[in-house]
Structure formats: structure tokens, C-alpha cells
Amino acid sequence: MTEATPWLLVDDDEAFATVLGRALARRGVETVLAHTPEQALAAMAGPVPARCVLDLNLAGDSGLHLLPELLARNPALDVVVLTGYGSIATAVDAMRRGAVNYLCKPVTVDQLLAAFEPETMPDLRPAPPSVEELEWEHIQRVLGEHDGNVSATARALNMHRRTLQRKLQKRSRWRG
């Protein structure tokens, strides 16, 4: 497989992006790395990429905020969103904003390549969700509705802000 145009890899984890870029290079895919939203937008000024791998969490900022800006610069751009903290709410949000697929880390290069195929749908959940997963999904949905504002989310959930922060921290350590 040889890609005519480079792929844009946007991930704040420089080591991960470098390793992924090398793995794709072994498959004949040239990549351009960006570690911040600003670098990603600057990369769109060069040879316009046809595909983008976008991390959901960019040093505290959401890759979902960057997604519409990337698509505004290249409406034909195929974007796969990667995350270490998958949820149905963020997957739906990513797809609504224009992503072609959504994958949870860790992923193999084969999974990533397959994610760009039109018939490939994300396999988000192999089994019915647990009560904890349903709670997490609900928290993520409400957090998204409040643009990541923890205090507003806690009020909407009728939950103390510190309790919500503990749940978010516990889940990130558990999933990380």
C-alpha cells in the first residue's frame, strides 16, 4: 500500500505519534506529525492530507474541537478519532462532527488501516455494558453538553463537584 498524499497524525504524545508514524511508513504511508491543534492546522497549509488520525485528548483540549476546523480546510479529509477513554457519547459526537471512524487505544496498524475503509464500523462494545459503564457514558454525555465544565456538569447531575472529579480521576487511572 502506497499513499499518494501524507496522512496527518495529531497526538500530543510525541512518542506514540512517532511510533505510529514509523509503523505506517513500513506500510508505505507517509505521515506528517502534529502535537498541538496549531501544528495540525499549520500542516493543512502544506500538501493537503487525505487522511487524519486525531487523538481525542490533546493536552487537555478536545480533538473534537479541532475536527471541524480540519474539515473546513479540507472537506474531503477522512478522520479517524483515537482515544484511550472511549465512550459511546464521544463516538457519536465524533461521527456527527465528521469523523469516519472512532477507535479506542491501543490499536494495531491493521485496525487503523481498516478504520478508513467505508464498510468498517467501530466495534465499541463486545458485551452488554455494566452499571459502571452506563454511569460513565451518562457522565460523559452530560460533560459534553456542558463543554467539559466540571462544575456545571456536577450541578446538572445533582452531584457534588468533588465527587464528580473523583469519578473522573478514578476512571482515567483505571482506563489509563
Rank of each mutant, 00 (worst) to 15 (best):
residue 90 T to Y: 03
residue 77 L to N: 14
residue 101 N to I: 03
residue 101 N to L: 02
residue 106 P to G: 12
residue 95 M to N: 01
residue 78 D to N: 13
residue 75 P to V: 11
residue 111 Q to G: 07
residue 100 V to L: 05
residue 77 L to T: 09
residue 68 P to M: 09
residue 76 A to H: 15
residue 84 G to P: 05
residue 114 A to M: 00
residue 95 M to C: 04
residue 92 V to D: 11
residue 96 R to M: 02
residue 67 L to A: 04
residue 102 Y to D: 07
residue 96 R to C: 01
residue 117 E to H: 04
residue 111 Q to N: 01
residue 104 C to V: 13
residue 68 P to W: 02
residue 68 P to Q: 10
residue 96 R to L: 01
residue 72 A to Y: 11
residue 112 L to M: 08
residue 106 P to K: 11
residue 85 Y to G: 08
residue 103 L to V: 01
residue 96 R to Q: 07
residue 100 V to I: 08
residue 104 C to E: 11
residue 91 A to N: 06
residue 70 L to F: 10
residue 85 Y to R: 14
residue 69 E to Y: 06
residue 108 T to I: 07
residue 105 K to D: 06
residue 83 T to K: 02
residue 77 L to P: 14
residue 102 Y to G: 06
residue 105 K to F: 00
residue 121 M to L: 09
residue 108 T to Y: 02
residue 107 V to T: 09
residue 74 N to S: 15
residue 77 L to E: 15
residue 94 A to N: 10
residue 114 A to R: 00
residue 84 G to A: 15
residue 110 D to G: 09
residue 114 A to L: 03
residue 76 A to L: 15
residue 113 L to R: 01
residue 96 R to P: 02
residue 111 Q to E: 10
residue 73 R to S: 13
residue 91 A to I: 03
residue 118 P to M: 14
residue 91 A to M: 13
residue 85 Y to S: 12
residue 90 T to L: 07
residue 74 N to G: 14
residue 105 K to Y: 01
residue 116 F to E: 10
residue 93 D to F: 02
residue 97 R to Q: 07
residue 99 A to L: 01
residue 117 E to I: 07
residue 80 V to N: 07
residue 105 K to T: 06
residue 85 Y to V: 14
residue 86 G to Y: 06
residue 120 T to I: 08
residue 120 T to L: 04
residue 102 Y to L: 07
residue 70 L to S: 08
residue 105 K to L: 07
residue 117 E to W: 04
residue 88 I to H: 08
residue 82 L to C: 07
residue 120 T to V: 08
residue 97 R to D: 02
residue 106 P to D: 10
residue 89 A to H: 13
residue 73 R to L: 12
residue 105 K to H: 05
residue 97 R to N: 03
residue 91 A to C: 13
residue 71 L to S: 09
residue 82 L to V: 05
residue 120 T to H: 08
residue 83 T to V: 06
residue 112 L to P: 11
residue 118 P to W: 13
residue 117 E to V: 04
residue 120 T to K: 00
residue 119 E to C: 01
residue 111 Q to D: 06
residue 78 D to P: 12
residue 91 A to S: 09
residue 104 C to Q: 08
residue 81 V to L: 13
residue 92 V to F: 12
residue 113 L to Y: 04
residue 86 G to F: 07
residue 108 T to L: 05
residue 77 L to V: 11
residue 111 Q to A: 06
residue 117 E to K: 09
residue 101 N to D: 00
residue 115 A to W: 03
residue 119 E to S: 05
residue 82 L to W: 01
residue 91 A to G: 10
residue 94 A to D: 09
residue 78 D to S: 13
residue 102 Y to P: 09
residue 69 E to C: 12
residue 89 A to C: 15
residue 117 E to P: 03
residue 69 E to G: 12
residue 107 V to M: 04
residue 100 V to Q: 03
residue 119 E to T: 00
residue 85 Y to W: 12
residue 86 G to S: 15
residue 109 V to R: 10
residue 119 E to W: 06
residue 71 L to T: 01
residue 118 P to R: 13
residue 77 L to W: 15
residue 106 P to L: 11
residue 70 L to M: 10
residue 85 Y to F: 14
residue 112 L to Y: 03
residue 89 A to E: 14
residue 115 A to S: 09
residue 90 T to V: 05
residue 66 L to W: 05
residue 97 R to A: 11
residue 110 D to F: 10
residue 98 G to T: 05
residue 108 T to E: 02
residue 112 L to C: 11
residue 114 A to V: 00
residue 92 V to C: 14
residue 70 L to Q: 10
residue 117 E to F: 02
residue 112 L to T: 05
residue 110 D to L: 12
